[in-house]
Design a protein around this nucleic acid. Structure first.
Lengths: 151, 151
DNA sequence: GATAAGATCTCTAGCAACTAGAGGTTCAAG
DNA sequence: CTTGAACCTCTAGTTGCTAGAGATCTTATC
């Protein structure tokens, strides 16, 4: 039986985040001590590790919820899990492509800048005129599936 | 003199977003018509285009605020702008590297999955055990500087 | 000039995925 | 048995918007 602090240390998930996951129903409610403090077992720890790792891989919480419910039904076909992972893979590839376009644009901006004054700074100039861009399409997608999280 | 709708059409920034930028002080307050509707001039349009393009390049609004205040001082050295752009470039490179690690992990997960049942699905298994990962460090950074936006 | 459609106004609330803080209780070490 | 760290609940803040309600304004048509 782990306290929330021990569970946090064991999984690398912050204490308020654990409570948040419980609140939104990702983690089942923990038992409580006589003094109302949460007590966790190995199952919780595993489930939380699963969540954490999935978050690291960029899955949004909605997807993780699905994956967790799949993992609770070991006899089912894993096709659904594959669909989720494939979707995530596609999102990641898309993000990489866009970010690479950004990278090139930023590098171009910086190498062209002669370190003079703002008035002829290429950085500012490029930002002012989208027409100067090599890549017209460096916006990211509507459904980012981003993975910014974590400490 | 453009209405907010025309400005929106001209720049690709949604109407509520324009109002939001005004609210947080990124765009100066517009003049108003007799009936209290916003009226914009070319200056506003340029500034908004600058903001939009910067957002597309992934700059967070705080950085854009700095860049805008720099662009208002054309005689200054552009070193500060370069610092901001370099910082953004570094963040982008970092994100790309992490996303590539994710991509490999996801691909590995998927190619190993034999399409059987959940109980031996590699997707679920990899998510359960971080130890199975080739890359230990596929979390993204603490300061994402992400660019998920836009329609 | 009247009317109706569409655009605009302000305001509030919501999204993801948490993080931070206040103010109070409980646990564990000495 | 005391003290200080860890825990509790609750609210509000973060970033960058988006969505909706309900009211008002503008513009085109008749």
């Amino acid at each position: 039986m782990l306290s929330i602090g021990k569970l946090s240390a064991a999984t690398g998930v912050k204490v308020p985040t654990i409570r948040y996951y419980e609140e939104i129903g990702l983690l089942p409610e923990a038992e409580r001590s006589s003094g109302n403090q949460r007590l966790y077992r190995r199952e919780h720890q595993e489930r939380l590790a699963f969540i954490r790792h999935s978050r690291e891989l960029g899955f949004p919480l909605g997807d993780i919820r699905e994956l967790l419910s799949l993992s609770d039904r070991p006899d089912m076909s894993c096709a659904a899990a594959d669909v989720i992972a494939s979707r995530q893979l596609a999102a990641v590839k898309d993000r990489i492509a866009r970010l690479q376009a950004l990278q090139e644009e930023l590098e171009r901006m910086l190498t062209q800048c002669a370190q003079g004054t703002i008035s002829d700074c290429k950085v500012i100039e490029v930002l002012s005129n989208h027409e100067n861009c090599l890549h017209a399409d460096h916006g990211e997608s509507r459904h980012p599936a981003h993975a910014d999280h974590d400490s």
